[in-house]
Design a protein around this nucleic acid. Structure first.
Lengths: 108, 108
DNA sequence: AAAATAATTCGTAATTTTGCGAACAAATAC
DNA sequence: GTATTTGTTCGCAAAATTACGAATTATTTT
């Protein structure tokens, strides 16, 4: 009964996946990826939730490293954190590049 | 203040992401992708959690459509659901293929 | 200085997630 | 037919998530 820990990669991938595991946050990321300007208010406008909740979701995306914010008083400009976006992209690509059920005798 | 709903794609992507948003579930998927045989007991062995919890995580992955189970009494054989795996792969690929900060004037 | 604008934080509530041990179900082995 | 093996389900608890309105902060405009 060998109890193994999770690898750093597994933990980081899960962290990114968790941050993306909500339709609102996917919508935010889609919006940020498509826009040149990305003030809080612009994001808030396209979402069917209260601004306090939007702020919370942005915090989670920021904590996960997927976005960053820049204060341009009295507004706040958000954008995707390119470096971590690329890391996440690579981690998901690697994850999904695993060959599934090698040998083909799984569940059949 | 146009309140938009989320697209089906956003909802489906978020659903897959949520299912993958936990290191244990990533580890399970990695294991299933690498194994030819995949009985519950084999999965349970590599995880540092109780079997009841493992069963729960498998349920969530199954609910999300990422895996499927087959009873081979008294054992249960699990494997990746190829069709949905491919859908998830495509959704994540499309998501990460978005060009980030077009025009380059975001947050700089 | 006061009012307006923009966004975050606070306080709260409801729901979901994660985890465990114990009890249970279902088939096999003795 | 009783015991064993293998997983699931139940009941519970702690923590995290999602959501909101109200209060707060910080800058800008008047």
């Amino acid at each position: 009964m060998e109890v193994r820990n999770y690898s750093e990669k597994q933990i980081r991938l899960a962290r990114y996946a968790k941050a993306l595991g909500n339709p609102t946050r996917i919508a935010i990321m889609n919006f940020l990826a498509s826009q040149k300007t990305c003030f809080f208010g612009d994001i808030q406008e396209i979402l069917p939730i209260a601004k306090a909740t939007t702020s919370q979701h942005l915090s989670e995306l920021k904590d996960a490293g997927l976005i960053q914010g820049e204060i341009m008083a009295p507004k706040v400009k958000y954008c995707i954190n390119r470096e971590n976006w690329e890391e996440a992209k690579a981690l998901f690509a690697e994850f999904f590049s695993q060959s599934v059920c090698k040998g083909g005798n799984c569940c059949k």
